[in-house]
Design a binder for these strands. Structure first.
Length: 476
RNA sequence: CGGGAUGUAGCGCAGUCCGGUAGCGCACUUCGUUCGGGACGAAGGGGUCGAAAGUUCAAAUCUUUUCAUCCCGACCA
């Protein structure tokens, strides 16, 4: 990490803030709790976004846009929904120089406005399904904020689908949580557990909530994406019915799902180390950075000639590169800067390399230095990026395995939660039991696992046989 | 809203106990030498010390009030 930064081991939250601000991802804004996303951070978000958007399109979804201002009484139409969001909505009470008779809220999520529109759009089963996604900002007035992980305003995508049957809506919700898993694991190199939320933790207004849960570097859990089966709750609240094939009126079934700029925070806390950020090649704004090294006109010319042989090949291979030819900084400075910003591969080209027609490569994840010939380098660069992507993921899988412990007593669970990590166990307790454990240990049930390690076991708390395997952990 | 801490140059901080010319490092500007792991020298520019009131010949420093931010809890994508 850069000079003056507290090392990760000593103070994780200070480390995190330093990585975000010194890595030029984001900055605090004059408005408390809001975040300015800087160009480098936004480029990262755009790469995440484009991969996700492609997967949405591949599964038949389309993008649309709904207003940011929602009539306040819309939120009140769904009982759980209003109860869940009331404490955190920002309300617009004045506009046009006078007090509004009917205030608006800044959307904390768009279910209500979207279902008000779906009422107009849906008449027959022939109008279904509707598979709409929107990329938008939302506002939630949380008490405590943290760059990327929880900000007052954040960017996200929210999908809102309408279906003929319960099964179709539920399958949609499952499909989308699986897409989130694919995004996290294949693109962000971040292993996640997929499962169902308990009643305590589910989305206000949902019948069931599914989530992906990741383990951060400090061994706390982070919910990285959610998907909800909404049943007919919002259809009933907004009176959205369709005429089915039997000529009967029926309420529409729904799903909604979203991931946010929190994913950027997740990447930082998953892969970052004492040197700063470490970005997976598939989403890094620059996959490689090239640092030219020369001292005089003669060596500069040699190096530039070498670069002329490299640049067109990188372009042809669609590699996102940054040729750092700033002359006011020394190479050593640049090495540290790009390590802090997490660029997966650094390529050094100097007079010595030009003489032997080769380059020097250094991997951000392992620090390993290699001296390939130019041909070897150009031939293998794409493969090297793939290898780094895979190695980063494997490393995180290993880390999660080391920190996932099966427990069968409360004492064991307390110990795991205290040390940090995932406590895996069977569960047959009630919501009250869960709350009591939360009060005593700060740990919550992250999810009921879809992929269990075994079919059934005894609940550590009630002693009853259970087929529900869960993860307990402290979470962000 | 509770508990803790901090507000001094763009950033990081010292100075506050014990009142007496506003300081250091980084960054910035100019020139020269450098350049393969955060270069060096020389010369510069930049601050009504968070705000207000009080005590005093004199306040960054003491007193009171106030505002803001950060960290820890409750809330939460």
């Amino acid at each position: 990490m850069s000079k003056g930064v507290t090392p990760q081991s000593k103070d994780y939250s200070r480390w995190y803030t330093d990585v975000v601000t010194k890595g030029e991802l984001a900055d605090y804004s004059p408005v408390k709790g809001c975040m300015v996303i800087r160009p480098y951070g936004y480029a990262l978000w755009e790469n995440i976004k484009s991969n996700l958007d492609r997967m949405f399109k591949e599964t038949g979804h389309v993008n649309a846009y709904f207003p940011m201002l929602i009539p306040e009484d819309f939120l009140k139409k769904e009982a759980e929904h209003v109860e869940g969001f009331a404490p955190e909505v920002a309300v617009v009470t004045h506009a046009g120089g006078k007090k509004l008779e009917k205030p608006f809220v800044l959307r904390p999520t768009s279910e209500t406005i979207i279902w008000a529109m779906y009422k107009k759009w849906i008449n027959s089963y022939r109008d279904l399904p509707i598979l709409i996604n929107q990329w938008a900002n939302v506002v939630r007035w949380e008490m405590r904020t943290r760059l990327f992980l929880r900000t007052t305003e954040f960017l996200w995508q929210e999908g809102h689908t309408a279906h003929e049957t319960a099964k179709e809506a539920k399958d949609e919700a499952i499909q989308m949580i699986n897409i989130y898993q694919k995004l996290a694991e294949d693109f962000l190199a971040m292993p996640v557990l997929v499962g169902k939320k308990t009643e305590n933790e589910k989305f206000p207004g949902a019948v069931e909530t599914y989530s992906i849960e990741a383990l951060m570097g400090d061994k706390k859990a982070l919910q990285a994406g959610t998907s909800h089966y909404l049943g007919q709750n919002f259809a009933k609240a907004f009176d959205v019915k369709f005429q089915n094939k039997n000529n009967e009126q029926e309420f529409v079934y729904a799903s909604s799902w979203g991931v946010s700029t929190r994913l950027v925070g997740a990447i930082i806390m998953t892969h970052g180390d004492d040197k700063g950020l470490m970005l997976p090649p598939k989403i890094a704004p620059h996959q490689i950075v090239i640092v030219p090294i020369f001292r005089d006109e003669e060596s500069k010319e040699k190096v530039m000639n070498l670069w002329k042989k490299i640049e067109p090949v990188l372009k042809e291979k669609n590699i996102r590169f940054n040729f750092d030819d700033r002359e006011s900084m020394t190479p050593g400075y640049k090495f540290n800067e790009w390590e802090m910003k997490g660029v997966p591969v650094r390529v050094e080209i100097g007079p010595k390399d030009a003489d032997r027609n080769g380059v020097v490569t250094v991997r951000r994840d392992t620090g390993k230095k290699s001296f390939p010939s130019l041909d070897e380098f150009l031939e293998n660069i794409s493969e090297l990026l793939d290898t780094i992507q895979k190695d980063m993921f494997d490393k995180q899988i290993k880390f999660r395995e080391e920190n996932t412990i099966d427990v069968d007593s409360y004492d064991d669970l307390k110990k795991v939660v205290e040390d940090g990590g995932f406590a895996r166990t069977f569960w047959a307790g009630s919501s009250d039991d869960e709350n009591r454990i939360k009060d005593e240990t700060k740990a919550t049930i992250r999810c009921e696992l879809f992929e269990k390690t075994k079919e059934s076991g005894k609940c550590f708390h009630t002693g009853r046989d259970s087929e529900t395997q869960v993860i307990f952990s402290k979470a962000y």
